[in-house]
Amino acid sequence: MTLPNMSFLITGYILLMVQTHPFLPFGRNGVRPDLILILVIYIGLNYSKNRGALLLCFLGYLFELVSGAPHGLYILIYLFSFCIIKILKKYFNFETFGKRFAILLVCSFTKFCILQFCFYFIYETGSILGQKPFFQETLFTLILFPFVFTLLNRIPGQQKNSSDFLPPL
């Protein structure tokens, strides 16, 4: 495994541990920021399709191990988000602060739509799960987004001469 792959895997693991920790100051009522989604955006903007998708599958799998979510759901969510980023990247550049926030909102909304689909058609409880957790989760993620993104930019072993590489915020 190459150094960037390993670095991202370790970073993903650390972010997941922070998100799982019972003493996380955010989300005492169960709503937590999605730090892995920030990593998905970073990987989507900086990584090749194959390597990025494989890495996200593994991160999604780790996420599902500590979560009550059914196996495969978060892998699907992260893969969908990854594909959306790859498609949007063909038409826009994401070098500005505002555009990166916009892509986070798009990914959060994609995730919300997939989860709502699940709750409506699989668990048949969609009508009772309101938008409150979605707004809270997105807000928490937006607050932490600049810090996590800046930290990700400092991960060693990245191909800094790559045209895909983004400057820090």
């Binding site: 997941l16 998100q19 799982t20 920790h21 019972p22 996380l24 989300g27 169960g30 709503v31 937590r32 999605d34 892995i36 996420f63 500590v66 979560s67 009550g68 979510a69 978060y74 989860l115 709750f119 799960l129 957790p133 809270q136 989760e137």
Partner: peptide, 15 residues
């Protein structure tokens, strides 16, 4: 003792 909470905001589990 509780050592972990669900990282997802939508599913409710603890470890």
């Amino acid at each position: 003792e509780i050592i972990g909470r669900d990282p997802s905001s939508w599913f409710k589990t603890i470890i």
